[in-house]
Simulated scan of single mutants.
Amino acid sequence: MHGEFKVPGGKLVVVDLDSTDGRISGFRLAGDFFVEPDEAIPAIEAAVDGLPVDADAATLARTIRDALPDGAVLLGFSPEAIATTIRRALAKATSFADYDWQLVRGPALEPLQQMAVDQVLSEEVGEGRRGPTLRVWQWSSPAVVIGSFQSVKNEVDLGNAEKYGFEVVRRISGGGAMFIEPESAITYSLYAPIDLVQGMSFADSYAFLDDWVIQALRGLGIDATYQPLNDIASPAGKIGGAAQKRLGSGAVLHHVIMAYDMDGARMAEVLRIGREKLSDKGIASAAKRVDPLKSQTGLSRDEIIERLIATFGAQTSLTESALTDAELARAQALVSEKFSTPEWLQRVP
């Protein structure tokens, strides 16, 4: 069995192993990381050999850490990264390059349609009717998109939302509220088979699925980093945030919104961002927490999107695609049956 895991912001970890009578055997560790002393590698390999194949990541990491020689230094990886890689090998996890990815650009959709398309494409990929897909959203109107478990009245000033023409909708993933002005946001979704994140915790999978966009932003001259659990940031402030949903159909939905430009004053009027949420940020307002891509790059929104797509395409097999008539019809049905209903929007009043 073979497993690989690129540590976000770090190095590649590669493992090969066998399974004998329910236990790991023939374990070998490699990668482009740094380690001192050299003897740490055979010590790790000896400690992993003989462990049960169903050992969880925490047990694996603890065993590896206990086996390290005194004073050992691991650079670009960690015992936890090795444990994740082992679990991915045992689960026969896949990588981005194992798939032929499809690219969907637009069309411009209403907020309720966006929510429904996310569910439809996730289900289509999970059922094998569509290949793994990157969708770049285009918005037809302003919106506030709240997370699956957020309270409407706690998150949104409904009076100001109506005043300024922002439709309030609820998505299927968790996380925080998204403030959308059509030309001021860059939004994308990844729809992938669950095998892509096999062996990873939710926290690990966020970093893994965002790594390519971090690379793209760095290519634009932005000192972008991943900030657990789900933020993309630079020294100047937050750039964007991610949310994720794993569906029973066998798919993972991972979507991200990044601020291209932003009316911070308007956002503060529409969203109720309380002091408790900002208390650990060392700042007085949500607007000061966000640093849009326009101010950092000077590039147009379309230019940044093209650079993002080019980075993804350089790492994968990526071909142009489009929403099918059947997918659009199913999405429209979901708008009526689910996403536009009070039962869905007000599930947490």
Rank of each mutant, 00 (worst) to 15 (best):
R105N: 06
D38W: 05
V152Y: 02
V197M: 04
R272N: 14
E181S: 14
G3W: 03
L334N: 02
L271A: 07
E183K: 08
E155A: 14
K288H: 11
A43P: 00
A268Y: 06
D38E: 11
G9V: 02
A47H: 03
A329D: 15
L334C: 02
V14Y: 13
G250H: 03
I283D: 05
D49R: 08
E181H: 06
A83I: 07
G248T: 06
V144S: 02
Y226V: 09
E39F: 04
W344D: 00
E306S: 12
E127Q: 12
G241V: 01
A93G: 04
P69N: 04
G298C: 10
E320A: 13
F77N: 01
D195P: 00
D98Q: 07
E39G: 11
L209E: 04
A242N: 07
I273R: 14
V13I: 07
E303L: 03
V213Q: 11
P8A: 06
I146R: 00
E123R: 03
G31L: 06
S317D: 14
L90N: 07
S184I: 04
A331H: 10
N230S: 11
V13E: 07
P111H: 11
E343A: 13
L158F: 04
S122V: 03
I146N: 00
D223S: 12
A242W: 00
L293V: 11
N160E: 15
F166T: 09
L328D: 13
S148C: 11
A185P: 02
L229C: 01
E320C: 04
S140N: 08
T316F: 10
R130D: 06
G159P: 01
G219S: 05
Y206R: 01
D210G: 14
V256C: 06
A203S: 15
I257H: 12
N154C: 01
W344R: 07
Y99V: 00
L112R: 14
I305V: 13
D280N: 06
I86D: 01
L29N: 09
P111V: 04
P235G: 05
P37H: 02
L217F: 15
G131L: 15
A265S: 12
R289P: 00
I222G: 09
A81F: 09
G219Y: 14
L229Y: 08
A284T: 13
P52A: 12
F202D: 03
G165P: 01
D16S: 13
H254A: 00
F339H: 05
A72G: 04
M178G: 07
G241R: 07
A265N: 12
L318P: 09
E45M: 09
Y260I: 05
A81K: 02
R170P: 14
A61S: 14
V15P: 02
Q296N: 07
Q138V: 00
I222F: 02
V168C: 09
Y226F: 15
S340H: 12
T319L: 05
G71L: 08
E167L: 12
T311C: 15
Q150M: 10
E45H: 05
P107T: 05
T319R: 09
I64K: 10
S300P: 09
P37E: 03
P42R: 08
K11A: 15
L299E: 06
A58N: 08
D54Q: 06
R170S: 14
E269K: 10
R246H: 08
S173E: 08
A46S: 12
P235N: 10
Q138H: 13
K6V: 00
F34D: 05
A143N: 07
P107C: 05
R130T: 12
W139S: 02
L75S: 10
A265Q: 15
